[in-house]
Simulated scan of single mutants.
Amino acid sequence: MTGRIAKVVLMKAGADGSLARWVIDGGDEPADVRARVLEGLRRPTRTVRTELDLDDGQVVRLPFKDFAYLLPDRSGVLAIFMHGSYTHPDGSDVFPYPNNAAIFNADGSLRFQLKVVDPRVHHIDCLHGGTLPEKFEGMLGVLVAYSENDTPAWAYAVNSEHPDLIDAMQWVRY
Protein backbone atom coordinates (compact mmCIF):
# COMPACT_ATOMS: atom_id res chain seq x y z
CA MET A 1 0.00 0.00 0.00
CA THR A 2 1.18 3.48 -0.84
CA GLY A 3 1.59 6.03 1.95
CA ARG A 4 -0.03 9.43 2.18
CA ILE A 5 1.54 12.43 0.46
CA ALA A 6 3.77 14.59 2.64
CA LYS A 7 4.98 17.06 -0.02
CA VAL A 8 4.53 17.97 -3.66
CA VAL A 9 7.85 18.86 -5.30
CA LEU A 10 8.82 20.48 -8.59
CA MET A 11 12.29 19.54 -9.78
CA LYS A 12 13.77 22.62 -11.44
CA ALA A 13 16.90 22.76 -13.57
CA GLY A 14 19.14 25.75 -14.11
CA ALA A 15 20.79 26.69 -17.41
CA ASP A 16 24.01 25.05 -16.17
CA GLY A 17 22.25 21.75 -15.39
CA SER A 18 22.08 22.26 -11.61
CA LEU A 19 18.92 20.95 -9.94
CA ALA A 20 16.72 22.18 -7.11
CA ARG A 21 13.83 20.43 -5.30
CA TRP A 22 11.15 23.09 -4.77
CA VAL A 23 8.43 22.05 -2.32
CA ILE A 24 5.26 23.65 -3.69
CA ASP A 25 2.73 22.09 -1.32
CA GLY A 26 3.04 20.40 2.06
CA GLY A 27 5.81 20.78 4.59
CA ASP A 28 6.09 23.24 7.46
CA GLU A 29 8.07 26.10 5.91
CA PRO A 30 6.41 29.26 4.58
CA ALA A 31 6.25 29.54 0.77
CA ASP A 32 8.91 32.26 0.61
CA VAL A 33 11.37 30.08 2.53
CA ARG A 34 10.65 27.05 0.31
CA ALA A 35 11.22 29.16 -2.83
CA ARG A 36 14.75 30.14 -1.72
CA VAL A 37 16.10 26.92 -3.26
CA LEU A 38 15.46 28.53 -6.66
CA GLU A 39 17.80 31.46 -5.97
CA GLY A 40 20.88 29.38 -6.72
CA LEU A 41 19.68 28.23 -10.14
CA ARG A 42 21.22 29.90 -13.18
CA ARG A 43 18.59 31.49 -15.42
CA PRO A 44 16.74 30.51 -17.47
CA THR A 45 15.25 27.67 -15.48
CA ARG A 46 12.93 24.88 -16.54
CA THR A 47 10.75 22.36 -14.76
CA VAL A 48 12.10 18.81 -15.10
CA ARG A 49 9.37 16.84 -13.30
CA THR A 50 6.75 16.79 -10.58
CA GLU A 51 7.25 14.42 -7.64
CA LEU A 52 5.36 13.35 -4.56
CA ASP A 53 7.25 12.72 -1.32
CA LEU A 54 5.24 10.18 0.63
CA ASP A 55 5.17 9.94 4.40
CA ASP A 56 6.71 6.44 4.22
CA GLY A 57 9.83 7.77 2.43
CA GLN A 58 8.87 6.83 -1.13
CA VAL A 59 9.25 9.34 -3.96
CA VAL A 60 6.71 9.04 -6.78
CA ARG A 61 7.17 10.73 -10.16
CA LEU A 62 4.03 12.08 -11.76
CA PRO A 63 3.60 11.85 -15.57
CA PHE A 64 3.60 15.65 -16.04
CA LYS A 65 5.65 18.76 -15.18
CA ASP A 66 3.03 21.09 -13.67
CA PHE A 67 1.89 22.29 -10.27
CA ALA A 68 -0.21 19.84 -8.27
CA TYR A 69 -2.17 20.57 -5.11
CA LEU A 70 -2.60 18.23 -2.15
CA LEU A 71 -6.07 16.89 -1.51
CA PRO A 72 -7.21 17.57 2.07
CA ASP A 73 -6.85 13.87 3.00
CA ARG A 74 -3.38 13.67 1.32
CA SER A 75 -4.42 10.62 -0.70
CA GLY A 76 -3.77 12.39 -3.99
CA VAL A 77 -3.28 15.65 -5.81
CA LEU A 78 -5.29 17.90 -8.09
CA ALA A 79 -3.55 19.11 -11.26
CA ILE A 80 -4.88 21.78 -13.64
CA PHE A 81 -3.44 21.78 -17.16
CA MET A 82 -3.36 24.83 -19.39
CA HIS A 83 -3.48 24.31 -23.15
CA GLY A 84 -0.18 22.79 -24.30
CA SER A 85 1.28 22.08 -20.86
CA TYR A 86 0.71 18.27 -20.82
CA THR A 87 0.50 16.73 -24.26
CA HIS A 88 0.53 13.46 -26.15
CA PRO A 89 3.46 12.87 -28.56
CA ASP A 90 1.32 14.28 -31.40
CA GLY A 91 0.96 17.60 -29.52
CA SER A 92 -2.69 17.21 -28.53
CA ASP A 93 -3.62 17.89 -24.92
CA VAL A 94 -3.94 14.89 -22.61
CA PHE A 95 -6.73 16.73 -20.77
CA PRO A 96 -8.27 19.21 -23.25
CA TYR A 97 -10.55 22.12 -22.34
CA PRO A 98 -13.01 22.30 -20.68
CA ASN A 99 -12.06 19.14 -18.72
CA ASN A 100 -8.44 20.20 -18.21
CA ALA A 101 -7.90 18.96 -14.68
CA ALA A 102 -7.41 15.60 -13.03
CA ILE A 103 -6.85 13.94 -9.70
CA PHE A 104 -3.88 11.61 -9.33
CA ASN A 105 -3.43 9.11 -6.50
CA ALA A 106 -0.42 9.02 -4.17
CA ASP A 107 1.07 6.18 -6.26
CA GLY A 108 0.99 8.42 -9.36
CA SER A 109 -1.94 6.66 -11.04
CA LEU A 110 -4.84 8.63 -12.47
CA ARG A 111 -7.89 8.62 -10.19
CA PHE A 112 -10.06 10.47 -12.70
CA GLN A 113 -10.29 13.43 -15.04
CA LEU A 114 -12.53 16.21 -13.72
CA LYS A 115 -15.71 16.72 -15.72
CA VAL A 116 -17.27 20.10 -16.34
CA VAL A 117 -21.04 19.68 -16.48
CA ASP A 118 -21.85 23.41 -16.89
CA PRO A 119 -21.92 24.23 -20.65
CA ARG A 120 -20.90 27.85 -19.92
CA VAL A 121 -17.44 26.80 -18.70
CA HIS A 122 -14.61 27.20 -21.22
CA HIS A 123 -11.84 25.84 -18.97
CA ILE A 124 -10.74 25.24 -15.40
CA ASP A 125 -8.24 28.00 -14.68
CA CYS A 126 -6.72 27.79 -11.20
CA LEU A 127 -7.00 26.60 -7.64
CA HIS A 128 -9.39 28.67 -5.52
CA GLY A 129 -7.39 29.75 -2.48
CA GLY A 130 -10.34 31.20 -0.62
CA THR A 131 -13.12 29.57 1.33
CA LEU A 132 -16.12 27.84 -0.14
CA PRO A 133 -19.62 27.77 1.36
CA GLU A 134 -19.89 25.54 4.45
CA LYS A 135 -21.61 22.68 2.60
CA PHE A 136 -18.34 22.13 0.66
CA GLU A 137 -16.18 21.81 3.77
CA GLY A 138 -13.21 19.50 3.20
CA MET A 139 -13.22 20.05 -0.57
CA LEU A 140 -10.81 21.95 -2.77
CA GLY A 141 -12.14 24.69 -4.97
CA VAL A 142 -11.21 25.76 -8.48
CA LEU A 143 -11.97 28.89 -10.46
CA VAL A 144 -13.29 28.57 -14.00
CA ALA A 145 -13.43 30.90 -16.99
CA TYR A 146 -16.46 31.18 -19.24
CA SER A 147 -14.45 32.10 -22.35
CA GLU A 148 -10.89 31.79 -23.63
CA ASN A 149 -9.88 35.28 -22.49
CA ASP A 150 -12.23 35.54 -19.52
CA THR A 151 -10.91 36.23 -16.04
CA PRO A 152 -11.60 33.19 -13.83
CA ALA A 153 -14.35 34.29 -11.49
CA TRP A 154 -16.69 31.43 -10.66
CA ALA A 155 -15.87 28.92 -7.93
CA TYR A 156 -16.58 25.22 -8.25
CA ALA A 157 -16.00 22.55 -5.62
CA VAL A 158 -13.99 19.39 -6.25
CA ASN A 159 -15.17 16.20 -4.56
CA SER A 160 -12.08 13.97 -4.58
CA GLU A 161 -14.30 10.88 -4.85
CA HIS A 162 -16.40 12.00 -7.86
CA PRO A 163 -15.28 13.58 -11.16
CA ASP A 164 -18.11 16.10 -11.71
CA LEU A 165 -17.31 19.69 -10.70
CA ILE A 166 -19.91 21.14 -8.34
CA ASP A 167 -21.09 24.71 -8.87
CA ALA A 168 -20.46 26.50 -5.57
CA MET A 169 -22.68 29.41 -6.69
CA GLN A 170 -19.88 31.76 -5.67
CA TRP A 171 -18.41 34.62 -7.68
CA VAL A 172 -14.84 35.53 -6.78
CA ARG A 173 -13.14 38.77 -7.64
CA TYR A 174 -9.86 37.68 -9.25
Rank of each mutant, 00 (worst) to 15 (best):
S18P: 07
P44C: 07
D28W: 03
K12Y: 05
A20H: 10
V60M: 04
H83S: 14
D90R: 10
M11N: 02
R34F: 03
L62K: 03
V60W: 04
G27S: 05
R43D: 11
R36S: 15
V77L: 07
Y86P: 00
V94W: 03
M11V: 15
S85L: 12
S18L: 05
E29Y: 02
V37F: 07
P30H: 10
A20T: 13
R21S: 13
R46P: 00
P72K: 01
L19S: 06
D56S: 06
V33L: 10
Y69T: 15
A20N: 10
V37P: 09
T47I: 15
L10S: 08
V9I: 15
S18M: 05
A20Y: 10
D66Y: 03
F81R: 11
F67Q: 11
Y86E: 11
E29G: 04
A35N: 14
V23W: 02
V9W: 00
G57W: 05
D25W: 03
R46M: 11
I24T: 15
E29V: 04
M82G: 14
M82C: 06
P63S: 03
G17A: 08
F95W: 11
D53K: 04
T87V: 15
P72Q: 00
A68S: 14
L70D: 00
V48M: 09
D66I: 07
L38S: 09
P30A: 09
P72D: 00
S85I: 15
R43S: 13
Y86M: 08
Y69R: 06
I80F: 10
R42V: 12
D56Q: 08
K65S: 12
D73Q: 02
A79Q: 09
R42Q: 14
V37S: 08
V59I: 14
M11I: 15
Y69P: 12
R42Y: 01
D32A: 07
D28E: 15
R43L: 14
T50E: 03
V48G: 06
V77G: 02
F81P: 03
A6W: 01
V9K: 02
V8M: 04
L71G: 00
F64K: 11
A68C: 11
F95M: 10
D66Q: 14
L52Q: 02
A79S: 15
D66C: 13
L70C: 08
V94D: 10
L10E: 10
R43M: 13
R61M: 06
D25P: 00
A68K: 07
L62N: 03
R61I: 01
V23A: 04
S75K: 11
T87E: 13
T47Y: 04
E29T: 07
L70P: 05
V48A: 06
F81H: 09
I24K: 02
A13P: 06
M82N: 12
T45R: 09
H83P: 02
V8D: 01
A79D: 08
G76T: 05
D66V: 15
M82S: 14
G17M: 06
I80R: 08
V59W: 05
